[in-house]
Amino acid sequence: MAKDILKRNNVTVFGDGPQVMVFAHGFGCDQNMWRFIIPAFKNDFQIVLFDYVGAGKSDLRSYNPERYSSLHGYAQDVLEICQALDLKNVIFVGHSVSGMIGLLAAVEQPSYFSELIMVGPSPCYINKDDYIGGFNREDIEGLLETMEKNYIGWANFLAPQIMKNEDRPELGQELTESFCSTDPVIAQQFAKATFLSDNRDDLPKLKTPSLILQCSDDLIAPLDVGEFLHRRLPNSTLRVMNAKGHCPHMSSPEETISLIKNYLGVIA
């Protein structure tokens, strides 16, 4: 069972050090996105990397539309990986939507986590009443359309999704090389689960201390959202980065590394 889960989520474990760090990728990518960050931690920590089911080199046959229709299904992936590796008190680093996935997991099983580090998180992407998430519904529809257009080049784009891949998971793999998500339908569902989620009510439930790494000038998680999170998350630290955009761990790895090390009290 544990073995199945490690295979299902393409879990990789390496590094030296007693304290475990779990790195979780965001929407649109896979564990490779941590490539520029990991070298700075692997000598002092045990590193756990994985792909959510449907992303990267995970086992597509395990994809269950019911389970992954909301972020709770993705949080189950995180919890099951912790269970499979018998992990407690891990430092969880989540990019983008993985900030909230980590939060849901930590609310459900507080003992698994000692720190949550969220890179560019947002509890709700859509503007609602007084809350400014940054987007409206049409923007998300537009994103889904853009995604569809970009998946058109895929060899098996015209093949009906539900019939393919079930017995031949390797079919999607060549495409993984270009996009990190392997299947247009799954990618669309992840987009919906991500951008239509609203976890604002879950924020006060978090007991685990957290670090919010907020980029300056991030379209997907604007500064107001970072401040909102900081106000609602008990025991949180907000650090506004010089890095711009939504992927500081790729655009400014040095700054990202030093802020994380600083927060964890590791000499940078």
């Binding site: 649109g28 529809e141 994103l143 853009t146 995604m147 951008f195 379209l219 997907i220």
Partner: peptide
């Protein structure tokens, strides 16, 4: 929408 795609897919 293209900016979201830019940040989540294109840039990575």
């Amino acid at each position: 929408p293209s900016r979201i795609f830019f940040q989540t897919h294109f840039f990575p």
